[in-house]
């Protein structure tokens, strides 16, 4: 009867579909980080200055930090429910490589928590008076950068999912790992204002994304095995 066994691709799709379905049924988990992103970004003009020139200078950094914090807030829901109800054990015991199962969960998670932030970023950029020539590049850097944040965050969540009180430990693990992406993202956006060639900067971000896709799920998978043990 082994001819009815699923291929890894089918198991990957089933996991992706399941996680998207869960996100659709638990809209809070999707909407809260998104609202958090909008609110954090709006606090800066109130707290610092409403002057358009000065806002424009910090806009890229504000957007990136808000996206980073929103991603962190959304991370906790990635494996928690699965750990508590035993679905994670089923995932670990499937005959398919855990790498692909973790990748499917990460992709589903980014689609519902990262992508909305990327899509709304030009609107926030307009509010923060980012120079119009930077809109496109900001959008592209966030599109390349937020998946990296999700993939790195997944490692932290996988390590801490078995702990009773997670709280700040997740931020302490994840935020330092995110600093290189923050630097690359904001630097790329600032270079548009200096008129420098951007291909090199974008290539670095692309390389970071590829490295994260190929390595981070391996680390997450190993961390999940430790957490369940």
């Amino acid at each position: 009867m082994s001819e009815t066994r699923t291929s890894t691709g089918q198991a990957f799709r089933a996991t992706l579909k399941r996680d998207l379905l869960i996100a659709y049924k638990r809209k809070n988990d999707v909407v809260n980080p998104f609202m958090f992103f909008l609110i954090v970004a709006t606090l800066f003009p109130i707290g610092i200055t409403p002057e358009p020139e000065r806002l424009g200078e910090i806009a890229a950094g504000v957007l990136w930090i808000a996206a980073l914090l929103a991603s962190l807030l959304a991370m906790d829901s990635l494996y928690r429910a699965d750990y508590e109800d035993g679905s994670l054990e089923q995932l670990l015991l499937s005959s398919h490589p855990l790498y692909f199962m973790v990748l499917a969960k990460n992709i589903a998670h980014w689609l519902v928590s990262g992508l909305p932030v990327v899509l709304v970023s030009p609107l926030i950029a307009y509010m923060l008076n980012l120079p119009p020539e930077s809109y496109l590049i900001l959008f592209v850097t966030l599109l390349l950068g937020t998946p990296i944040l999700s993939l790195l965050g997944s490692i932290g969540v996988a390590l801490t999912v078995g702990l009773g009180s997670r709280g700040l430990i997740l931020a302490v693990i994840t935020l330092p790992m995110s600093v290189p992406i923050l630097i690359a993202g904001t630097l790329t956006v600032q270079q548009t204002l200096n008129g420098a060639s951007l291909l090199g900067y974008l290539a670095i971000m692309g390389a970071m994304l590829l490295a994260a896709i190929s390595l981070a799920p391996l680390a997450s998978a190993a961390a999940l095995r430790i957490s369940v043990n």
Binding site: T15, L21, I22, A81, H96
Partner: peptide, 21 residues
């Protein structure tokens, strides 16, 4: 291994499709 927000059908479909069609 039963997710609370999914229905029995959706739960069963996922757990089974980890192994077989």
């Amino acid at each position: 291994g039963v997710n609370k927000v999914l229905s029995p059908l959706e739960n069963l479909r996922w757990t089974c499709s980890l192994q077989q069609q």
